[in-house]
C-alpha cells in the first residue's frame, strides 16, 4: 500500500504566545517547533499499516519554509520512507490554497491512502483534508478515531457529541485523523541514523488562490480568577451562596 501523510510544522503549544510586531502572527522567537499533534498520529498509523502488511511505502509531505525539512526528517526517523518538501516561506491561512499545492504534488503518485490531521493545532482550520479529497477526486472521511483497512474497504469510526458513527468507503481515499487512534512513536537512534539517507524531494509550492487572509492576531483577555474561597466540605455553603448570588448560575 502506498500512503501519503500531510505534515505541518507548528510551534510547540506549551507556551504563552506573544503577538508578532506586525500584529499578524505569533512572535516566533524562542519557540520550538514540531509536527502538529494529529499529523503525528497520522504518520504513526501509516507506518503501522505498512509494518503490519510487511510491504508498502509511506511518503510524508509538508508545505513550509526551509525548516519544514527538519519536521519531515523526524517523520522519516519514525519510519516513513520518503519525503516531499513544498517550499513556501510565508504563512498561509487559506486551506483551499494549501490543499491545491499538496494535490498538485500528490495527484500522480498512485497513493492508496492520503492522510491528514483532523486540524493543524496552530490555525485550527480543519479544511485541508476535505479540499485535498475534492481536488484528488477521492472519497473522504474526516476526523476518524478508529481505522480498519480490510482489502480495499476502509472502515472508520468518528466521534460525535455523546455518540459515534461508523463510516465506510473504498480505497483509494483521503482520511483525516483524530485523536485516540495511536500515539506518535519516538524515533529510535537507529531510525534517526536511517532517516539521514532517505530521499527528500524539494519542490516549489504551487499554491492556489488565497482568499482567507489574516487581519490581526490578539491575545484573549486574561481571566480574573484565582480566588480560593475555602477548604474542605466546610466551604460548600459559601460556594453555593456565591453561585446563587454572585454568579447567578444556581
Amino acid at each position: 500500500m502506498k500512503i501519503a501523510v500531510c505534515i505541518k510544522r507548528v510551534p510547540d503549544q506549551d507556551v504563552r504566545f506573544k503577538v508578532a510586531p506586525d500584529g499578524k502572527g505569533v512572535d516566533e522567537s524562542g519557540l520550538k517547533f514540531d509536527m502538529s499533534d494529529f499529523d503525528g498520529y497520522a504518520a504513526e498509523i501509516a507506518i503501522q499499516l505498512t509494518e503490519k502488511a510487511g510491504a508498502g511505502e509511506v511518503t510524508v509531505i509538508s508545505l513550509g519554509p526551509d525548516a519544514a525539512a527538519e519536521t519531515l526528517r523526524k517523520a522519516l526517523s519514525m519510519g516513513a520512507h520518503r519525503a516531499i518538501h513544498l517550499k513556501h516561506d510565508a504563512h498561509v491561512s487559506d486551506g483551499s490554497a494549501i490543499a491545491a499545492a499538496l494535490a498538485a504534488a500528490l495527484k500522480d503518485g498512485g497513493y492508496d491512502l492520503v492522510l491528514t490531521g483532523r486540524m493543524a493545532v496552530d490555525t485550527q482550520n480543519r479544511s485541508v483534508g476535505a479540499h485535498l479529497a475534492a481536488l484528488l477526486e477521492l472519497p473522504y472521511i474526516g476526523a476518524i478515531s478508529k481505522l480498519d483497512v480490510d482489502g480495499t474497504t476502509v472502515k472508520a469510526r468518528r466521534e460525535l457529541e455523546g455518540a459515534f458513527e461508523l463510516v465506510e468507503c473504498q480505497l483509494p481515499a483521503v482520511l483525516s485523523i483524530d485523536e485516540g487512534i495511536a500515539r506518535a512513536r519516538y524515533p529510535s537512534l537507529k531510525g534517526i541514523m536511517a532517516a539521514k539517507k532517505k530521499p527528500m524531494d524539494v519542490l516549489p509550492a504551487q499554491l492556489g488562490a488565497v482568499r482567507y487572509v489574516v487581519d490581526a492576531f490578539a491575545l484573549p483577555p486574561e481571566r480574573e480568577g484565582g480566588r480560593i474561597i475555602g477548604e474542605g466540605p466546610d466551604a460548600v455553603p459559601e460556594l453555593v451562596r456565591l453561585l446563587k448570588e454572585e454568579a447567578k448560575v444556581l
Binding site: 510551534p11 503549544q13 504563552r16 504566545f17 503577538v19 505569533v26 491561512s93 493545532v121 496552530d122 490555525t123 485550527q124 482568499r211 482567507y212 487572509v213 489574516v214 487581519d215 490581526a216 492576531f217 490578539a218 491575545l219 484573549p220
Partner: peptide, 20 residues
C-alpha cells in the same frame, strides 16, 4: 466578511477576512 476564530490551542484570537 470578517471573522474571529481562536487558534494556537485557543490561546490566540485570529481575525481573518474571507473574500470568497
Amino acid at each position: 466578511c470578517s471573522v474571529k476564530h481562536p487558534g494556537f490551542t485557543n490561546k490566540v484570537i485570529q481575525s481573518f477576512s474571507l473574500t470568497a
